[in-house]
Structures are given as C-alpha cells and as structure tokens.
C-alpha cells in the first residue's frame, strides 16, 4: 500500500479531509522522529516499540575490490511488535 492509499484510508476512518490528515500525519511523524533522535523509546500499546540501536564504527570490506573503509557509527531505528500486534496480525492473516 502506498502512502497515498494509507492517507486516504486514514482520512475515511477518521472522517477528516485528506489535506488535514496529511498535516496531522506529518506532525505526528516529526514528533516521533524528534523523540527517537533524542534517544527516547516510543512504546505504544497494541502496536509495539520503536527504538534506536547504536551500531559502532567498523571497517567495511568491499567484496570485489577488497578495499577497506572506516565506517562512522550509525544509529538504526528498529521496530519490535508487541504480543497484541502479533496476535492481531495472526488473526487477520488467517
């Protein structure tokens, strides 16, 4: 599903105009990004946890050229669904 379809579905469920839905969604995503950037963990019931994990600096070896690169540290965003999410997912899938 594309972003457009997702926004349309959300607008319909919330009985909101698409433009308004887009505005609120953009704000919500900005808040989530800011909080994750501050190092916070976002925990939402029936959904799961959005968290960050630090990957330390490392040497990366390219397979073909065998060139070695010193890669800077990186923060990865990870999503861990909670049990309610998984159960709901199983029901819907079946």
């Amino acid at each position: 599903m594309t972003n457009e379809d997702f926004v349309a579905a959300l607008s319909q469920q919330l009985n909101l105009e698409t433009k308004k839905t887009l505005e609120i969604l953009a704000t919500a995503i900005t808040i989530i990004s800011e909080k994750l950037a501050e190092g916070a963990r976002i925990s939402v019931e029936n959904f799961g946890i959005l968290d960050t994990e630090k990957k330390p600096e490392h040497i990366f070896v390219e397979q073909e050229s065998l060139q070695r690169f010193l890669m800077p540290p990186e923060i990865e965003v990870v999503f861990k669904p909670d049990s309610a999410f998984i159960e709901k997912f199983k029901e819907k899938t079946a």
């Binding site: 599903m1 972003n3 997702f6 469920q13 609120i24 919500a28 995503i29 959904f47 819907k92």
Partner: peptide
Amino acid sequence: AFLKKFFAAISETVSKEDRLEITDFG
C-alpha cells in the same frame, strides 16, 4: 483518536498487504 487509528491502521494494513510505505517514516 488520530494516533490510535494511525498505529491500528499500520497493524491492520500490514496483515493484509505485503508492503506499507509511509512517507518520511518508513
């Protein structure tokens, strides 16, 4: 209501569709 629907819509969509793309999120 918006946030609840947002997170619920993600889990519902993911179980029905093989891919869900949300701009600037993931």
